[in-house]
Amino acid sequence: MSLIKEIDLPGIGRKFQVNARSGDKLVIVVHDDGRREIHHFDNDDPEESISMVTLDDTEARRVSGIIGGMAYMPKALESVDVAFDEMVFEWYKVESGAKAIGKNIGELHIRKKTGAMIIAIIKKDKRIVNPGPDQVIPEGATLVVIGDRKQVKSCKELILHGSL
């Protein structure tokens, strides 16, 4: 995905420049203190931003979840996995025979054992964003898992077999 350009801002954070296919230009600055600045630029004037939004860390995560389709999956897509550099989001459906069903995230030690993290659980009309450690894995739900490819794979195995 060459449409995103990354630039280091030493002492401040990192800048991501996105030239969208629609022709819009978006620049996101991730500050080391957790703030995010999102700027919108005019096509023919790369110097002055038209508008900007500042988000704190929590807000930025929420918004990223919405944009990533975690809260509401776009209807056009069946199952999704999104790769961003090494980072992968995967929508994983818990099959009926999976050993982890009925256990909670804390006792499975998902994050500790696999490194991956479940950031949302979607079941029919119910959505749990950012589930806590006592959240039980329900049958037939879709889990949104984040991690690198290996971590996500071992997380899926953990869900299926109940252990690694």
Partner: peptide, 9 residues
């Protein structure tokens, strides 16, 4: 809020 400007680099 100048972090986004090109010359800031």
């Amino acid at each position: 809020k100048r972090t986004v400007r090109a010359e800031t680099e």
